[in-house]
Design a protein around this nucleic acid. Structure first.
Lengths: 341, 341
DNA sequence: CACCGTCGTCGAAGCGCTTCGAAAGTCGCG
DNA sequence: CGCGACTTTCGAAGCGCTTCGACGACGGTG
């Protein structure tokens, strides 16, 4: 591999001139700069990563901690990891993947050894141990997801409360007042994975505000059948259904409703809210308030890059406003996208 | 952060003694070593990653290239990336995630800048551009998956041909001679994603060897219905079914068969082969010849670590023998695991 | 004409570690 | 008692880069 030495020799200048010509941190006569650039590309020069890291005290690497719980949706997980990686690249950073039991130890290790310049935390639980860890480390860290105690942390996430409100308001505007929620399995709720809780609580709160009785069902083993039956038992005239649940459950909701003689959207209007999957290929494509991985990740990484590069401090919590995608499961119209608050 | 200097001072020895005490590359008097180890842990010392990289000319990082195609199974993808990461950790390596358009450029970049010590290539197509790239780079690289031309490459994968044979032989032993295959969508086959092709070809070849007529169906839009109908049209007495397909299709095969009045395993015995998902939660759990991500990744990473650490050369292709898991969809018995060839 | 500010470039220090060669100390044997 | 062989530790070079301070050349000003 060519070193900066080789480039300097080839261009007939000193090492420092090459460095400045390439980094642009001092002005270099245009003609010299061109000679250097030429030489560099002729030699296929790329700075040695570790040498640069050592001298600049920057690794240009972000660590991503992504634990795998048994009830983790791997597919959503991957999308988030990918989106973080892509966003990081636009800022000149690569991403290191930290998994599993490696997660807390990995966070500590990559910080203590200056392996990473910052950390992105995915799949955050309400009482995530990584929250305390981040507080104690004072290392640039951004959470995608919101733990119970956000003191001293920087968090980014979809505004699930607003998403729940938007879902309810949309149904109400469509004349649906008897609304139910299919949530996540109790297993997930008990782990206090943060967003299912926030969505459900936001849902319950807004329903109460509007004076609506709004039952909630927690599916078992990813089956929609019993969940739908429960809701119908609690609310026999059910005419609006909000889904904040797994793809398995959502995809069989239409069938489950059909078993009870209800069709979508005529009898029951359905909105999938705060979900990562697409409903496009469903038998009846559902209106969606997506949990947009790209948006969250790009905002989170922007913030992290700003903290590291410009060492600014960031606001504690950034909520991303929900977006509404119409696919005809509330009122049968063409697809459209609008933004809520 | 504490440096090796601090540890040396604290332990009252020289820097090099600390280095040797920690690395074990030269013998150090036990009492001194203990003093050093004490000092290090007292100071919470962890070597500065970039300094170590620069001096040792090793980054202890593997790059993982994982492109996302539109028909990519994100879930399987994630599992592979995670398993590579876990396996890498057991060898003291971290993993850098390379995605998307970044993939070829990322491979080149992480090699040319010595960012990574080696590269793991995931989701390999038959005519994957990364194969040529790897050949031209002469950088330690292992493919998980097998491209059409493996000359000069190191590849690891499940032995799909053997898996297909094992599936057929198992069905035949169970007295099923009228066998069909549900494969992947034509979209995937046309991209020449390597393993669906290898499985199908292995299936067809072994069926021909046994003198069996064995139709193949390619599902559309992840629906089992038409695929099953096609097979029944081609083979009205279908009594054995091999699934090398997506989880969406596989999970609705039982229902699709039921529509034609066939039950599993009484009328049709079913084996899911070369798949990453678990069939445990299916209505009828299928016998499985799994594409074991952990096995492939761990073998691949072992090889890569051996190439990098001990600079050995590796055999071109390592095929992982298939494993058979009984769940009662061929003959109704308890679960069991056996190994084929 | 002496002086000063600017521009463009260079030399050298230093980032924190690994590793080579050698020094100092210890022991046993002739 | 002296010498070689071994053990244990140290010093210093060097990995490839960034960055600070400084120097020479140049042109404008008093």
């Amino acid at each position: 591999m060519a070193t900066i030495q080789d480039v300097a020799r080839e261009a007939g200048v000193s090492i420092s001139t090459v460095s400045y010509a390439l980094s642009g941190k001092r002005s270099i006569k245009p003609s010299t700069r061109d000679r250097v650039l030429d030489a560099a590309s002729r030699l296929g020069y790329l700075p040695h990563a570790s040498a640069r890291m050592l001298a600049a005290n920057r690794s240009q690497i972000f660590a991503v901690t992504a634990p795998l719980h048994t009830d983790t949706d791997h597919s959503a997980h991957m999308v988030f990891a990918m989106e973080v990686t892509k966003a990081a690249r636009t800022h000149g950073y690569d991403t290191l993947l930290l998994v599993d039991d490696d997660v807390s130890e990995g966070m500590r290790r990559s910080a203590a050894s200056s392996l990473a310049d910052g950390i992105v935390v995915l799949d955050v639980d309400a009482h995530d141990p990584r929250a305390d860890l981040a507080r104690s480390m004072t290392y640039p860290t951004v959470f995608i997801g919101i733990p119970a105690d956000t003191t001293g942390l920087v968090c980014v996430d979809l505004d699930f409360e607003a998403a729940a409100r938007l879902a309810i308001d949309t149904l109400v505007s469509a004349g649906r007042q008897r609304i139910g929620l299919v949530s996540h399995p109790l297993e997930t709720m008990q782990r206090e994975s943060n967003f299912p809780l926030r969505f459900r609580d936001g849902f319950a709160a807004h329903a109460a505000e509007l004076g609506l009785e709004a039952p909630v069902a927690y599916p078992v083993e990813h089956r929609a059948h019993e969940a739908v039956a429960q809701l119908l038992a609690a609310q026999p005239d059910l005419d609006g259904l909000v889904l904040n649940t797994s793809v398995d459950v959502a995809s069989s909701v239409t069938a489950a409703l059909a078993e009870h003689g209800r069709s979508v959207p005529q009898d029951v209007a359905v909105i999938a809210a705060g979900v990562t999957f697409s409903t496009e290929r469903f038998a009846v494509p559902f209106d969606t308030i997506p949990l947009d991985a790209r948006a969250s990740c790009s905002v989170a990484v922007d913030i992290l890059a700003r903290i590291v590069d410009d060492n600014l401090t960031a606001p504690e919590t950034t909520l991303i406003p929900p977006t509404y995608i119409t696919r005809g499961s509330v009122s049968p119209t063409g697809a459209a996208v609008t933004t809520g608050t």
